[in-house]
Each structure stands twice: as C-alpha cells, then as structure tokens.
Amino acid sequence: MPLKGLRAISRYILLAGGFLIVIACALIVVEIVMRQVFRRSLGGVDELAGFALAVGTAWSFGAVLLDKAHVRIDTVYSHFGDKGRALFDILSLTGTVLFMSAMLYFATEVLTTSIRFGASSQSSLAIPKSVPQAMWVAGLGWFLLVAVILLCCCLAALFRGDWKQVGRLAGAPDIETELSAELADTEQRNAGEKGAQS
C-alpha cells in the first residue's frame, strides 16, 4: 500500500516536531538553572519555545490526520450506511484540503514578507524569523499533501465502488475497528473452513 510510506514519513516528521518541544523543555530548565545558580540568562528562551510549539505542532498535523485523530462529530454520520459514510468522509477531506490550502497560502505570505523585510526575532538571539516560519510552512504543506493524497485514494476507491475502503482510509476510528473486527472474523471463518476441508 502506497500509504504505508506516507504514514512512516509522517510519523518521523511528528517525532521530529516532538523533539523540538523536548529541546524547548530542556532549554527552559537550563534557563531556570542559569538564572538561579549563575545569575545569567540565555535570553530569548520563551521565544524559542514559542517557535518550537508552532513548528512542532505543524509537523504533527499530517500524522494526526493519517491516524484519524482530528476529532469529528459523528452524531449524524453514524446513522448512515457504508455509502453515506463514504460520502461524508470525502466531504470532510475536501473541506480539509480547502481550508488547509488557504492556510498554506496565507502562511506562505507571512514567510515571504519576513524574508523580504529581513525580519528577525525580538530577543538578543535575533533569529531570522524566516527560519522558523519556513519550517512551520513546510509542516502545513506536508499536512495538505497528506490530505490531498488521502482524498485521491478515497476518490479512486469510490470509483472502484469500494465503499468500505473509503471508511478504512478516512472514516471515523470507530468504523476502522468495526471493519477490522469484521475482517478478522471473516479470516477466522475462512481459516476455519480451510481447516475443516483439509
């Protein structure tokens, strides 16, 4: 499955984002110790931590989408059958692609403005703002890419008439569990039948 690769890469990006937060955490602790023990300040740790938060979370969005962890309200959704749900799933991905396209476009505008102005952060570190902003934009871009690929896979499944595959790719997590339980059930039964035949 081509999505396997996408999933693996997204996971590594999410972990990289997580380690930015861990580094921010370590810097905060170092700053506290420096301040209390050596009466000195690293200067700008709060700023770095803010950048880490923006970049780290942006890098996690793609993996969270593949993990179906962007929460959706299923009150109406759950009343439909496979076909109805598949349409809801595709609509939901289309909405995601739409909103994230706008987000990516305007985030890129933030980045290009920073590059043009040569903007830098306010603290003594004076980090060029374009660096964290480029990392942030890249994360949003990856999220959009993941959403587009998922949408394409879902549409392909739809045209094949494989409604259940849409649910597996983009349905509520609940549906996946149901489907895999069903699958396991079938496999077990098949295995049982095979065993009976031999």
């Binding site: 000195r40 300040s41 200067g43 740790v45 700023e47 603290s123 003594s124």
Partner: peptide, 19 residues
Amino acid sequence: NQTLADFVEAVGGTPVNLS
C-alpha cells in the same frame, strides 16, 4: 525588549524575559 536587556546587562543585572 532588547534595549532594556542591554541596560540591565550594563548595570550588571540579569534580564528575565517574562510575559
């Protein structure tokens, strides 16, 4: 801001960044 931090360093204090 940066110039306040410069002042604090000039008097031999420790600048602390807080919201």
